[in-house]
Design a protein around this nucleic acid. Structure first.
Lengths: 203, 203
DNA sequence: GTCTATATCATGATAGAC
DNA sequence: GTCTATCATGATATAGAC
């Protein structure tokens, strides 16, 4: 249940985030969100006139959390290694605190990819990748890293960070570990990814 | 629409797979599945008495596709490199043909992880990882690869293969490429992953 | 702003004719 | 086996009192 010392809109947003993140748009119920926020359905519709509008608010926040920080890092004046380390550190910290965020965002995007297109994230994200790609080319030219395709390397970076969270049910079962042990693996993973990537691209 | 020269049960399974894979359990509608199979709701319930039972049939097939082949490979008498290459080749081929399979399985598991536990997959998957882990230790002992944690390496392997499919909406937007170009990146990825992993673990 | 009550509609599931 | 018709439920959304 949501804390009652916040204003009603914030209580709704907090409750809706929790329900939508876990159950997705189709699985979430307005009744459950209202109850979780400590109000009733009527008042919920007073603040957000439709389930769609409430969901849009929640999804925007989640997408922003996923996309914004990477854009910031990639536009800073850093070496490739510094950018990669920054992304790994920031993302792993974010996802350890919000482990279901990527599953939620990716699943909703898979059902409606147009949620991404047309938003201002679109151009931001593309120009951010250009920065990454440029850094890769520079390091290759300097001979600091081996010949490696920027698209594949960026895919690797995102994969190594995010998949342990979206694939958790399978990996945890395959490893035969409990929640605490899996969380420990996630903690160790931050250093592992940085080392792994560094070794994999060295010239 | 499903081909009409198959028996009714198979038409239903084909139609249900397509709808469930795309929309998930909560988003799928029995009416839509019936229509897609070229029959009506009454007949659909005659073959599968509930939405749950139909879904279970579809989910079992999908989970089996994801889990079965990896188990087979890992239990064969192969070197670590051969096992890794086999998994990359087989999975990439499977996922290029069925790109939404991992998103479907992972999302449903995230909403109900118990679907995995208690099935016979459970023990199979755990013993398969033991085989992998053993291979890693042997190669390290031989000095063929550097010191690397088996859990992290297995996570990396699965991440590099699967994430490009579940994360496609984001990656494709970030790269600013169309479907054809992204498919091309996926084709190139098979060789990329094998090379990347080999370099990353060499001693 | 907040509540109760209700309208409206879509869904999963069943009954029964053929 | 296959269809049409219908039930029962549960969901979003609105109306109106306080």
């Amino acid at each position: 249940m949501v804390q009652s010392d916040k204003n009603t809109e914030q209580k709704i947003l907090d409750a809706a985030a929790e329900i939508f993140h876990i159950k997705g748009f189709d699985g979430a119920r307005m009744q459950e969100i209202a109850h979780h926020a400590g109000i009733n359905k009527g008042l919920l519709h007073y603040y957000f006139k439709s389930k769609d509008s409430l969901f849009d608010a929640i999804f925007s926040i989640a997408l922003n959390q996923i996309v914004a920080r990477i854009v910031v890092i990639l536009h800073q004046d850093l070496t490739l290694n510094e950018k990669i380390d920054g992304i790994v550190d920031q993302y792993m910290d974010l996802l350890i605190k919000n482990p279901i965020l990527p599953q939620f965002v990716l699943n909703e995007l898979s059902k409606d990819a147009d949620r991404f297109i047309g938003k201002h994230f679109n151009e931001m994200a593309k120009s951010a990748f250009s920065e990454f790609s440029l850094s890769v080319e520079q390091e290759i030219a300097k001979g600091a890293i081996r010949q490696v395709n920027a698209h594949q390397l960026f895919t690797n970076l995102m994969s190594l960070i995010m998949f342990p969270f979206v694939g958790r049910p399978i990996l945890q079962t395959v490893f035969g570990v409990d929640n605490q042990e899996y969380n420990h693996l996630l903690e160790l993973r931050k250093a592992h990814i940085k080392e792994f990537l560094k070794i994999a691209v060295r010239s």
